[in-house]
């Protein structure tokens, strides 16, 4: 459900872009999915056909790029992959972290004509 709602929001955002750019047909979109965005890439892929069903994006292809979730420890300053380290600093075990990358869901690219 979470991924379906997010993709429905994406369809609206892409519709606005398509109108501005006067695109008649969209072939493919490339999404950047942050590891800390809370979204499961395989679920995005599996509910994509349902999200675009009977919209102007039906029959478009989806490509995902995963953006690593890098965090900095607010206590000792170490930088590390937050997902691999289970949201805990590998140096000092602090859970007081600031995400440096990987929180966002970004439409990187639209291919169409």
């Amino acid at each position: 459900m979470h991924e379906l709602g997010i993709l429905s929001a994406m369809v609206k955002t892409i519709q606005t872009v398509a109108e501005q750019e006067q695109l008649q047909r969209i072939e493919k979109i490339v999404l950047q999915v942050g590891e800390l965005s809370g979204v499961v890439p395989s679920y995005l892929e599996s509910c994509y056909p349902a999200a675009v069903y009977k919209t102007f994006m039906e029959n478009t292809a989806l490509e995902l790029e995963i953006v690593p979730g890098i965090a900095r420890c607010n206590d000792c300053g170490a930088e590390f992959n937050a997902v691999a380290c289970d949201l805990q600093c590998p140096e000092c075990a602090s859970q007081n972290l600031t995400a440096l990358s990987g929180r966002d869901l970004v439409i990187k690219e639209i291919q169409g004509c």
Partner: peptide, 9 residues
């Protein structure tokens, strides 16, 4: 065309 969008979903 390939449009570089870089917009949040």
């Amino acid at each position: 065309r390939v449009l570089e969008i870089k917009q949040s979903i």
